[in-house]
Amino acid sequence: MTPVHFSFTAAFTLGLMGLAFHRTHLLSALICLEGMMLSLFIALSLWTLQLESTAFSTAPMLLLAFSACEASAGLALLVATARTHGTDRLQNLNLLQC
């Protein structure tokens, strides 16, 4: 495992851990998701840099674009949740349990 591989794996795992175990606010969940996506962005850009392959150079940009879309959809959902549930705490998302 190269240091680069280790660093983005660690970053991704940290993001995933935060998403899985720190379940207080929807916003923090979204930030963790964004962190995961950024670690992937780093991985893809370093792949391009390391192999010096121009064919792959659009991949990080595509990833960034998609993760931006995803983040905006998440933020929209955050607004919607705040309007319907009055808060963004994940504890309050309990209408559907039984």
Binding site: H5, T9, L33, M37, L40, G74, A80, H85, L93
Partner: peptide, 24 residues
């Protein structure tokens, strides 16, 4: 809205995991 939020979180996580695993 609640269902959508839950769906979004799981699907986004799963997609990120897929990409992470394939990058690895």
């Amino acid at each position: 809205v609640e269902a959508t939020t839950k769906y979004f979180l799981t699907q986004a996580t799963a997609a990120a995991l897929i990409l992470f695993a394939s990058t690895s």
